[in-house]
Amino acid sequence: MKIRLLSYLLIFVAIAMISCGKQRTVAIDIPYDGDKIVLNSIMTNDSIVYAHITKSASAKASIDSLTELSGCTVDLYENNQLKETLAETLINGRRYYVSKSKTLSNRSYTLKASGGKLQGVEGTDQIPAKPGFSPLEFWKISNPPDSLKPYRMTIKIKDPAGEKNYYRLKIYSASYNTGTKRYTINKNSEISFSLDNFIDEKGVFGVVSDNLSRTGFFTDDTFNGQEITLNLSLRTASGERLYVAPELMALSKQAYLYFDSKKKQENNKDNPFSEAVIVYNNISGGYGIVGGMADSITVIKRLN
């Protein structure tokens, strides 16, 4: 009897082991709060306002569900005063709501959007002051340690004291027409670069940039109120680079948080060893960003 009982138990153990051998998954439905208006607009000083309005979708839906919304009412307020209602316009096949008036530095702007059956949304931000910067030198070195980056540039940034400032740096290729004696900045051609001497608040070389190193975001924590010189290495091109156009953009805090967190989410999307990143959102009642930027751009000629 005991031997039979033990045998039955051993058979049970064997069957259970065979049946439980493989990995299994459970699927959990992802909740959704419902469709909301997505309002995206980055306002630049001395420029008209472009607002892009779309609809959100469930996290499990395909991205085809992220459709544009037409027929919305989008109002622009300056310092809490209604300035104008933006007009719906098609640009390069995409629908925008565009202003006639231009935004100015050091003023607060609010965009309010409503349409269809969705709850109205709004977002507010201030346009920062234009950044103080000047490019100093641009040259090519003959035996660069990294053959892909033979160019060097120095630029100077003068940071306002007493406030936290956020920056974005881009470098475009440029040209000079000797006939018309005019510079042309090609904003469709960005140049990859690295910052060689930048120390952020954590004391190490730390600038958030895109995967191609064409954009650098940083703050003034280590040079608040000071004038600093940045050393950059620029990537090579198929031809010689004689002119480049560095652009320094001062971002509002909200715009900086948005770009910074968006980039981190993109970089770590499928990384199982990183926490999920929350993208900054300042649209009440919906999603997106209303942010402010102010740019300074200039052209510099190569020394050698």
């Binding site: 992802i30 979708a57 469930s58 996290a59 926490e275 999920a276």
Partner: peptide
């Protein structure tokens, strides 16, 4: 930490 919606970025 779970996403509960998705939307277009700028």
């Amino acid at each position: 930490t779970l996403p509960v919606a998705q939307y277009e970025s700028i």
